[in-house]
């Protein structure tokens, strides 16, 4: 039953849901009742109007993640859940850095920073400059280290967003949901076809 901690890794859980007050809590408690920390959580409207997409990152074993994915999908307002390892997704986080403009202009080569870290100056004011960069955690972390000596004033990072590499067709399925509503035929059941690949297209 209990897998070795070494089997734990980051998993990206993607859930498509109705836009319903209280659903965030209903999903969050599925993790908290097992005392699992959510490393990152993003929720936003999906490409289909009225359907929301959750991206949740946790550090767990596959056995636990599979059970959690099923328990999320069981919720009445959840349409579909997938889980993927980091290798199976393309993911990004966005970070903003606020630094004093005079220091950065005098002591660091702004141009070098921008080029090396793929950063972009969002706002340049007399008193401060805000840089923006996107990337994996290590990349955005590296820029913090670099900027720290130059008087980093504030830093913020977004939750992770992830696109599943092999997700051809879910957009089409979502559109089918839309078109057949409020039809009574339940066609969306493909995860049961492929038991081992449950939730991972």
């Amino acid at each position: 039953m209990s897998e070795h901690p070494i089997d734990r890794q980051e998993y990206n859980i993607t859930a498509y849901t109705e836009n319903q007050i209280g659903l965030l809590n209903r999903i969050a408690i599925i993790f908290s009742r097992r005392k699992i920390n959510i490393e990152s959580l993003n929720t936003s409207p999906s490409e289909i109007e009225g359907i929301h997409r959750f991206n949740i990152v946790i550090h767990e074993t596959e056995d636990v993640v599979r059970k959690i994915a099923k328990q999320i999908e069981k919720q009445v307002e959840v349409l579909k859940v997938y889980y993927n390892t980091n290798q199976e997704v393309i993911w990004q986080e966005m970070a903003l850095y606020k630094v004093p403009t005079d220091v950065i202009a005098e002591k660091a080569s702004v141009e070098r920073l921008l080029r090396e870290f793929g950063a972009r100056a969002v706002v340049i004011r007399k008193d401060y400059t805000v840089f923006e960069t996107t990337g994996h955690r290590e990349e955005t972390d590296r820029l913090i280290t670099v900027l720290q000596p130059y008087g980093l004033i504030e830093f913020v990072r977004s939750a992770r967003i992830a696109i599943i590499k092999h997700s051809d067709g879910f957009n089409r399925k979502l559109r089918e949901f839309e078109r057949t509503e409020p039809g009574s035929e339940v066609v969306e059941n493909e995860f049961l076809n492929n038991r081992d690949g449950v939730f991972s297209m």
Partner: peptide, 14 residues
């Protein structure tokens, strides 16, 4: 009510 689009009361038999 007979149908809710996000709710699958019973899986299809395989």
């Amino acid at each position: 009510c007979h149908h809710i689009r996000s709710y699958r009361p019973a899986p299809i038999v395989r």
